[in-house]
């Protein structure tokens, strides 16, 4: 980056330019700049919800596309996610105060035997950004932990992640147990992770396989809308 850009004064940009600059800064994983820009937008009377969705979530959506297309790899995604996290940290208490929309509650975790969590964390963050409440069970989760958390949290959605071909079948164990206990249809079950595909998602009885975090958010919204229509 040139010195000129280094000296860029964020507060001198108009709103539109600043948001575009934030998309760039997220892309480059520049956490401090993101925090500064979030404060500026809030000072300009943007709602926390608009800062979150128009600046941060949209920026991460672009990162997600370039990751999918092989332009970015894992470290860049991690740095971008770190920057977004810093922005969300500022916004979170304000979002609660201002009563931003709550779309539903998701319990998410990586399945037993697997400790890959980068994709899972990204999905959790983007779901939160979209207005879902997320309970993250972390890694290496046995079926009991998922089911206990679903009940305890009165959740709407179960999200399971697996990155190993040896651990992806465990998702079926979880879903089969839910069927046995007669609670399968009480929840929307979304699954993801690089080695999975749509066919696998169907075969194990999930509601949907989601290729990435953006698809996860859209799918979750769709299923929640259907759920409400049914209930209403």
């Amino acid at each position: 980056m040139s010195d000129e850009e280094d000296d860029l004064i964020l507060d001198e940009l108009d709103d539109g330019e600043l948001v575009l600059q934030m998309h760039d800064d997220l892309y480059d994983g520049m956490a401090d700049e993101i925090a500064e820009a979030v404060h500026i937008l809030l000072k300009r009377k943007w709602t926390p919800y608009d800062v979150l969705t128009k600046a941060l979530v949209e920026g991460m959506r672009i990162v997600g596309i370039d990751f999918r297309d092989g332009i970015l790899f894992v470290p860049e995604v991690l740095l971008a996610a770190g920057a977004m996290k810093k922005g969300m940290h500022i916004l979170k208490p304000l979002l609660i105060e201002t009563g931003a929309p709550q779309l539903g509650k998701m319990v998410i975790g990586t399945v037993k035997g697997d400790i890959h969590d980068i994709g899972k964390n990204l999905v959790a963050m983007m779901m939160e950004g979209a207005g879902f409440e997320v309970v993250d069970l972390g890694i290496n989760n046995p079926v009991e932990d998922y089911i206990e958390a679903l009940k305890r949290e009165n959740a709407d959605i179960l999200g399971m992640s697996a990155l190993l071909t040896t651990t992806m079948p465990y998702m079926k164990t979880v879903i089969d147990t839910m069927v046995e206990q007669g609670i399968r249809d009480d929840y929307i079950v979304l699954v993801g992770g690089a080695p999975l595909n749509e066919e696998f998602g169907k075969a194990i009885g999930s509601d949907a396989y989601c290729r990435d975090a953006a698809v996860a958010v859209e799918t979750a919204k769709e299923f929640m809308a259907r759920k409400h229509n049914r209930a209403g």
Binding site: P75, E76, L79
Partner: peptide, 14 residues
């Protein structure tokens, strides 16, 4: 490939 040469601070995330 994990970017640890340029960003050693990512080590514990991985």
């Amino acid at each position: 490939p994990m970017g640890l040469d340029k960003h050693p601070e990512l080590r514990d995330i991985y």
